[in-house]
Amino acid sequence: MNFFRLVADLMHLASIFILLLKIQKTRSCAGISFKTQLLYAIVFVTRYLDLFTTWISLYNTIMKIFFIASSVYILYLMKYKFRATYDPILDTFRIEFLLAGSLVLALIFNYDFVPMEILWSFSIFLESVAILPQLFMLSRTGEAETITTHYIFALGGYRALYLCNWLWRYIFDGHVDVYAWVAGIVQTALYSDFFYIYYTKVLHGKKFELP
């Protein structure tokens, strides 16, 4: 564990709490893409299958269980409790392509051609593009509640800090994980426009609006 990874994980954790806070405080999931949330639930379930096979640490286990449980809980909130506040008309990104593309990539790029490894690769590739329906929704509405932008920022920042973590681990441990690196770079790059507007608008006390 190094500083970057710890802060990254805490940001990831924070992003989920911010999202839950947004939904509970405003009693609405307006502005949140159900499709992105669905993709994250798939990402966590397919990646953390090793909960049943490998013990890493208490920290690792608790975080994995939390990520799976919270993602399913958010789906429940959006699909049932606050269903009336969700606008499917704005959430029209075609996730079939993301799922199919990630699966094809996982079948080609994996550390071993066995179901667990293929699903792990699939989750890495799917995570890198899972934010797209949310960003697409943002571009359709052209604006967002400030708390929603904090959520997206924390979620994007987590993977950006993982890039620092991977550089650290490569230098000090010789740790190499090419698939995660490439996917992490793509994931962070997808946020770059968002980061720019977040920095120039939200952090200067203005509303998040697309130019």
Binding site: H12, D50, S57, N60, Y111, D112, Y162, N165
Partner: peptide, 10 residues
């Protein structure tokens, strides 16, 4: 040949 690949991250 399989690469050594430990998955200890989240």
């Amino acid at each position: 040949k399989k690469k050594e690949h430990k998955k200890d991250e989240l």
